[in-house]
Nucleic acid binder design. Structure first.
Length: 487
RNA sequence: GGUCUCGUGGCCGAGUGGCUAGGCAGCGGUCUGCAAAACCGCGUACAGCGGUUCGAAUCCGCUCGAGACCUCCA
């Protein structure tokens, strides 16, 4: 396959040809969840976006090591100095052990992602399991002269760093601007400069999550885990780092500074960032309190939801937009996505049942390259899906006997749709229980109904159809006979 | 206040210097006993005002509007 993949690199703000450092291997790191609450729709976006990237890179023949961390320590509630550890706070509220909270929401996150058909990453490291690596990393920065200790806490010295290296290259920020705009927060005394950030924090006596270090009993700063674990599993420089746009600053900026300070090298070759999901035009976020958890979507159990939504509908909804665009959630948009997905998947079932019946009037090879071009243009799943809908029209025309298809075209289309729908887009094939007992039962009812129709006993035929419809089984009278689908 | 992004037809959402995005909804038609599904046809969409150009919704400037980041956040 000769399709050049281009990706939008946040670092350069341009689309670049994707050339991994050591092909066919690709190292990819994505910021995972902080496990102190249920995953919401916003969490689905990076997970699905980078699942798509993971799947497509593999489809192109790359051997991808995909690392997605679980943050089970170290993220603070307000600011780095005075805040309380999120997980510890939740544990205190729920009167339980912090690690129990972390475990519960890690389990929940994994289960939710599984339902969304998000592939597990190659490595899913826990921050709490990599404390020695983080301490060592802090030490390297310290030894290189870019950190200082105050009262047992270690801070990154942005000013010293920026004299030697540009700080703010990812987010486009300048330190003097940061200075001007910085809000005065309490308890900044330990820092020499307000935009310095914590590499290691000394734990207060009541703080439960704590580890021994050369500086104090404490815990790592909130940007440290990604630097340490990325370095451990992918090396000092790796190919792709992904995450939500809201992590661009300060998190990813700090990661760059930490890595450059420790190793002298840029840690990442391509920075990829997904955009936000909005609700009523506003970002869906914990702090705004306007989030809807994925479980609530799956059950429909939320005042803003008109119905339950299948996980695949959520996935399709997200894939129908490009990952760098904001995506606005509404019930109408989700319902529209659901209907579109249904049409697409039914079209695939139709495609599987077609038989060659003449000359092909459609270029399947052309469709395939259009789909590949779309995906290779910075993972434009929206465009690829549009092409699949275009091909669908031809498939249905063949079904309706309006046009014809030959053996090769049919085989190509079947392979193409299977690959794109399931392998690349990661949509799940609908349950095929219509081969089982249920199918036999419904076939029997269809026979009775068609007898009735032949006898013009429409009262009986309509009653059968209506009662099946009430049970969620819809009959469709096609030229070739009657088929049924589950609603 | 600083940095940045965006403004596309009823809704969602691609794309782009000249060639139909697509989905949902709607209207008309084919098919059907009637439906459903499918198929065919239909909307003269690119916030506003200038400028560049043979040609701009696409490039530039301004205006208006929306949002993100600057604080934990996917």
């Amino acid at each position: 396959m000769d399709i050049r993949l281009t990706v939008y690199n946040t670092l350069t703000r341009t689309k670049e040809a994707f050339n991994p450092a050591n092909p066919p291997f690709v190292g990819m790191y994505v910021c995972g969840p902080t496990v102190y609450g249920e995953a919401h729709l916003g969490h689905a976006r990076p997970a699905i976006t980078f699942d798509l990237v993971f799947r497509y890179l593999q489809h192109l023949g790359y051997r991808v090591r995909y690392v997605r961390n679980v943050t089970d320590v170290g993220h603070l509630e307000n600011d780095a100095d005075e805040g309380e550890d999120k997980i510890a706070k939740k544990a205190r509220i729920e009167q339980t052990e912090p690690m129990e909270i972390a475990q519960r929401y890690t389990n929940s996150y994994r289960e939710t992602m599984r339902m969304l058909n998000v592939l597990p990453p190659s490595i899913e490291p826990l921050a709490s399991g990599h404390i020695p690596e983080q301490i060592e990393y802090v030490q390297r920065i310290f030894d290189a002269g870019f950190a200082y200790e105050t009262n047992g806490s270690v801070y990154f010295d942005v000013e010293t760093y920026s004299r030697r290296y540009p700080y703010g290259i990812l987010s486009g920020r300048k330190t003097d601007e940061l200075q001007g705009s910085n809000r005065q927060l309490d308890g900044q005394d330990e820092k020499r400069s307000p935009f310095d950030f914590a590499l290691w924090k000394k734990a207060a006596p009541e703080h439960i999550m704590r580890w021994k270090s050369p500086w104090s009993d404490g815990f790592p700063g909130w940007h440290m885990e990604c630097s340490a674990m990325g370095n451990k599993y992918l090396g000092e420089t790796f190919d792709i780092h992904g995450g939500g746009m809201d992590l661009l600053f300060p998190h990813h900026e700090a990661e760059i500074a930490q890595a450059v300070a420790a190793t002298g090298k840029q840690p990442v070759r391509y920075w990829l960032h997904n955009n936000m999901i909005t609700i009523n035009g506003q970002k869906m976020g914990k702090s705004l309190g306007n989030f809807i958890t994925l479980t609530e979507f799956f059950t429909g159990n939320h005042p803003s939801l008109q119905q339950a939504y299948d996980p695949m509908v959520i996935r399709f909804f997200i894939l129908q937009a490009h990952y760098r665009s904001t995506l606005d959630f509404t019930n109408e948009a989700l319902q529209a996505a659901g209907k579109g997905l249904k049409r697409l998947l039914e079209g695939y079932q139709t495609l599987k049942s077609l038989k060659p019946n003449g000359k092909a009037t459609f270029d399947a090879i052309e469709l395939e390259s259009l789909c590949h071009e779309a995906m290779s243009d910075d993972f434009n799943s929206s465009m690829a899906i549009a092409h699949l809908f275009d091909g669908l029209r031809y498939i249905n025309q063949v079904k309706d006997g309006i046009t014809t298809i030959d053996h090769d075209t049919l085989a190509k289309l079947q392979e193409l749709y299977h690959t794109f729908l399931f392998t690349i887009l990661g949509l799940a094939e609908p349950a095929t229980d219509n081969k089982g007992v249920l199918d036999a039962v419904i076939q029997a009812l269809i026979h009775i109904r068609n007898e009735a129709r032949k006898n013009k006993d429409f009262a009986t035929s309509d009653r059968l159809r209506d009662e099946l419809a009430a049970a969620g089984i819809v009959l469709k009278d096609l030229k070739e006979g009657t088929v049924w689908v589950m609603e």
